[in-house]
């Protein structure tokens, strides 16, 4: 195909829109590498095409940007974790268990990782709850025995009054 024909044949438009076959694409790319006129036409057409699609653009809802950000982060975390899979995952789990900053807590076969300060907090809450329980029971039984003692003393006092008369 002659170069001039390229400019008016619609091949450039089809190329930019992704409508050409692989063979046509290669042929055109070879031409673009050598023919500056066709390349300039393609660049101009590209600008026009961008303007055309911008005219038909629809602003996406506001939450989409955050979703994309989140998805990229998830992908990056997965990529990060990939090198530690297999044999190295054992090493990483060992090194994590030796890590002084974290304690592995197992709940229904799923692991969560918490800061080591939480361990101290859990133990403190556990001990305090036991102390409150024991103290509560102690005062309950003490109050109970005192009440019984009062009843007994009242009964004794009532019993002693008629005897004096």
């Amino acid at each position: 195909m002659k170069n001039h024909q390229y400019l008016t044949s619609g091949v450039l438009e089809a190329y930019l829109l992704g409508l050409v076959s692989e063979q046509e694409k290669e042929e055109l790319e070879r031409l673009l590498a050598t023919d500056e006129e066709v390349l300039a036409q393609l660049n101009e057409l590209e600008t026009d095409m961008e303007a055309y699609f911008l005219n038909n653009a629809v602003p996406p809802p506001p939450g989409i940007r955050e979703k994309i950000e989140l998805r990229i982060n998830e992908t990056e975390i997965k990529k990060w974790q990939q090198p530690t899979s297999g044999d190295s995952s054992k090493k990483s789990s060992e090194s994590r268990s030796n890590d002084p900053h974290y304690v592995n807590v197992e709940v229904d076969n799923t692991h969560i990782r918490v800061h080591k300060h939480w361990k101290i907090a859990f133990i403190a809450v556990f001990i305090l709850s036991k102390i409150f329980l024991i103290t509560g029971l102690y005062f309950y039984f003490k109050a109970n025995s005192l009440e019984q003692e009062v009843i007994r003393l009242k009964a004794e006092a009532q019993h002693a009054v008629p005897l004096r008369r």
């Binding site: 961008e50 653009a57 996406p60 940007r65 990229i72």
Partner: peptide, 13 residues
């Protein structure tokens, strides 16, 4: 994200 800011509406259209 900067590409999204530039071409997001175009692509969504």
């Amino acid at each position: 994200l900067s590409l999204y800011d530039r071409f997001g509406a175009l692509a969504y259209g």
